[in-house]
């Protein structure tokens, strides 16, 4: 069950990244025809980010402590001390930026260069930092894995 929660966290995180990427590309070609789609996908991206936060947050608060203990006894202690610590705190700022995306999308994007630029910057940052946090999650998982592996040749 705990692994299912973790996988669901990764899945919703990837859906958030996909939605943010969709918004970025659609905004490059913003027009009256795709404005509603940009707004809908912005809301979807924010929704997926919040879902990722709640699922990952539940797992982190309830289930992470034993895994953390293993990681800190293993060879990849940095997977917690740097990657997890950074991930859990950068995520809080990402959540704010993700919540901001649908707010920017309420502007007249096809006719406002400033609104279009703001949408592009916001979605690009969500995309890039989202990818970074996704990679950090993979390193944290590997940190636990190498801690649990028997020593090679030992």
């Amino acid at each position: 069950m705990t692994l299912a929660i973790l996988l669901l966290h990764a899945l919703t995180g990837m859906l958030f990244i996909l939605a943010a990427g969709f918004v970025f590309v659609d905004t490059l070609n913003a027009s009256a025809a795709n404005l509603e789609r940009i707004r809908s996908m912005s809301r979807l991206a924010a929704g997926m980010l919040w879902l990722t936060y709640f699922i990952g947050g539940y797992w982190y608060v309830v289930n992470y402590a034993p895994e953390k203990a293993f990681i800190l006894k293993g060879p990849w202690t940095f997977s917690h001390s740097f990657f997890m610590e950074t991930k859990e705190h950068v995520f809080l700022a990402l959540l704010l930026l993700g919540t901001f995306l649908p707010i920017v999308a309420t502007n007249d994007i096809p006719n406002s260069p400033a609104a279009r630029k703001f949408m592009l910057w916001t979605s690009a940052l969500l995309l890039l930092v989202g990818f970074g946090l996704d990679g950090a999650g993979a390193i944290i998982s590997l940190g636990a894995k190498v801690a649990l592996l028997p020593a090679v040749g030992g």
Binding site: I103, T106, N107, D108, S112, P113, A114, A115, F118
Partner: peptide, 8 residues
């Protein structure tokens, strides 16, 4: 002269 709304 901003084209962005107050909330943004």
């Amino acid at each position: 002269t901003s084209t962005l709304n107050a909330q943004t």
